[in-house]
Design a protein around this nucleic acid. Structure first.
Lengths: 174, 174
DNA sequence: ATAAACTTTCAATAAATTTTGAAAGTTAAA
DNA sequence: TTTAACTTTCAAAATTTATTGAAAGTTTAT
């Protein structure tokens, strides 16, 4: 049996797709969506639905819905080639763009809605002398502050320049 | 039918528990774990397993395992009252501590392992002229840089002082 | 040593989430 | 207008994840 000492490209690709999928699912992102994204990230050309189905062994329905989702997240774009009916899919490979897109979407989908709810909960009136109320109010208010702090930080990040990201963060935080 | 114009404390508590659970599950945290955490965050005194089971309508097994997990995340501590056999559970209510703990754990559990894998994948050799290899190598290298940047930022954050968090972030990022 | 008062474990079950695939829908060429 | 080449949809099935509850384990008091 042949045992290789270093990883081959094909093996490395598989490992990357698997790991990216795992990380995604640990962070509440559909595993297949992360895997399709990973595949497109390491593929130079745009791929068809058919090719993605084959490479990841997934069904047409799954591939189709996942690709729509990725487009919805702003991570993948559809390409049409002249003279061809079928659609090609291509992933933006700029890491800074990817990070921004993901931050932008998760802020919109998950952070902003909870801030809205926390704002409501903060308004609930009660007897300040009542420890039940006092504890509720303090925790909700504090978490709301935290959430708004994160929200503003993300907003600033989204507006920021790429070089800020790669350069300044570490220096500033030192 | 009685319709109230503002939210009652009991209703608000339920809403908070439900929302915190939903946010947790969107970010890959077990919904029940987030709900138990939420309950403890808005409760002034330490609670017994029995009380948590009742308030959230969950089984003893579930309550027990969830509480162990929360202790493992450094978010909840066990309290023993003199003369009593049963254990009481109390949540740290300091938002900054909570944020730090969560960041610390997710870094250790999810970020560091993927960095290790990306380091391996970055080492894979190949023909630089081959677009398949070039694209793979560039994407993996870039994502690795991003991951390490996030890792270092978290490390700095973990070391940082509380007032840095509440004050500086926004100012620095402006 | 035994019982009482708890906590822990984990196989079985339930619930939630994801995936499939075939039918229906769309678009463009023949 | 018909057919071919696609894409989309979604109910049913498969898979994954979470929960239950009862039995086993532990600790302390009697």
């Amino acid at each position: 049996m042949f045992v290789h000492l270093y990883m081959e490209l094909a093996e490395a690709k598989q490992k990357f797709i698997e790991s990216w999928g795992k990380l995604g699912s640990e962070w509440g992102i559909n595993r297949t969506m992360a895997q399709v994204h990973a595949l497109l990230l390491i593929t130079p050309e745009a791929l068809t639905t058919e090719e993605i189905m084959e490479q990841l062994s997934i069904s047409r329905g799954n591939a189709n819905m996942t690709l729509r989702d990725l487009i919805g997240w702003g991570l993948v774009e559809k390409q049409l080639k002249p003279g061809e009916r079928k659609e090609y899919f291509f992933a933006d490979k700029d890491t800074w763009n990817i990070a921004r897109q993901v931050a932008k979407e998760r802020r919109k989908r998950e952070l902003d809605p909870i801030i809205k709810i926390l704002d409501e909960l903060t308004k609930v009136k009660g007897d300040t002398k009542d420890p039940e109320y006092a504890t509720f109010n303090k925790s909700v208010t504090d978490i709301n502050k935290l959430a708004k702090n994160v929200d503003k930080t993300l907003e600033t990040m989204l507006k920021a320049e790429e070089n800020w990201f790669w350069g300044s963060v570490i220096k500033i935080f030192k």
